[in-house]
Design a protein around this nucleic acid. Structure first.
Length: 284
DNA sequence: CGCCAGGCTGTGC
DNA sequence: GCACAGCATGGC
């Protein structure tokens, strides 16, 4: 068992961070969060200012949870009005984790027009069936399968992972990534808008999925993914003349406004607004 | 049952 | 350029 003593001036809330819907492979049972990240089967819990964990080293935990990122400075930079201020007070300590690009890409490919529990099931099924088994402190788990593994899965078998119409998108992305193993490095090296366009070349990856991958995996904190919840919230709070559904032009307007309004960490504002929305605030 | 969900693609105008 | 159907699946 390893521990990290959190700095008192750097808030961190493990439950909010892992339950807010940014990452799909964490489950909490008996007070412990269990998940698999980059082939590591991790078990972690928070007791006040102390993080206790197994299955990963200190450096990995600090990196994954971005514990060295100055959260109070970020939150004060996006704290532009009473509405976002309330979300910040409600979710203080939520940090954007650094997700592995490949798993993040496939996760958000599987997250179109669906809900979070269904995404978690799809990702879990792919891992259990095609991922490498990893024996960790809490039994057997499965790494998320790499591009080569997924590219070789017959269509019908991937379909059985409940991917539905997204099945071919995942297969095509896997084929592409298997052929271009440096795809993530190349995206990471691009300026934000170019990286965004590069991701959107993949079938099944539109503006929303691209923005999620840029934000959650590549650390482009100016990315502002607009799903139906965020569209609703931004419409109520900031752009009351928005239409009902989110056309490409409206998506563009919302993300441009939000980027300008909240600043270079607009992605944090997005996640705090999303997390503070009504339904999913089930205290883990 | 119907409506909604971390949307996107293809088609038609 | 914009609108609109269709889409698999599961929660509620």
């Amino acid at each position: 068992m390893k521990t990290i003593e959190l700095r008192p001036d750097q808030p961190f809330d493990l439950d909010l961070t892992l339950s807010c819907g940014q990452a799909f492979r964490w489950e909490k049972t008996n007070g412990w969060w269990r998940g698999v990240v980059d082939g590591r089967a991790v078990r972690i819990r928070q007791d006040g200012s102390r993080l206790m964990f197994e299955g990963a080293d200190d450096g990995f935990v600090r990196d994954y949870f971005r514990l060295d990122q100055d959260l109070p400075a970020i939150l004060s930079s996006i704290d532009r009005d009473a509405a976002i201020g309330a979300a910040i007070r409600e979710c203080r300590g939520l940090r954007l984790v650094r997700q592995p690009p490949w798993e993040c890409l496939i996760s958000y490919l599987c997250a179109t027009n669906t809900n979070i529990p269904a995404v978690k099931r799809r990702v879990a099924l792919m891992a259990e069936r095609y991922g490498r088994p990893v024996d960790g402190p809490s039994g057997r788990a499965y790494a998320f399968p790499g591009p080569e593994a997924l590219a070789g899965v017959p269509h019908g078998d991937l379909w059985d992972c409940k991917l539905g119409y997204r099945t071919n998108y995942v297969r095509e992305a896997a084929g592409y990534a298997a052929e271009h193993p440096d795809w993530a490095e190349r995206v990471a090296a691009l300026p934000f808008e170019e990286a965004r366009q590069a991701l959107m070349q993949l079938r099944g990856v539109g503006p929303k999925a691209a923005d999620c991958v840029l934000l959650f995996a590549f650390g482009f904190f100016e990315a502002f993914p607009v799903d139906v919840w965020i569209r609703r919230i931004v419409g109520e709070m900031y752009l009351p003349d928005l239409g009902k559904n989110c056309t490409p032009a409206e998506y563009e307007r919302i993300r441009r406004f939000s980027r300008d309004y909240f600043g270079e960490y607009a992605g944090y504002a997005q996640e705090y607004l999303y997390c503070a929305r009504g339904p999913a605030r089930r205290a883990a």
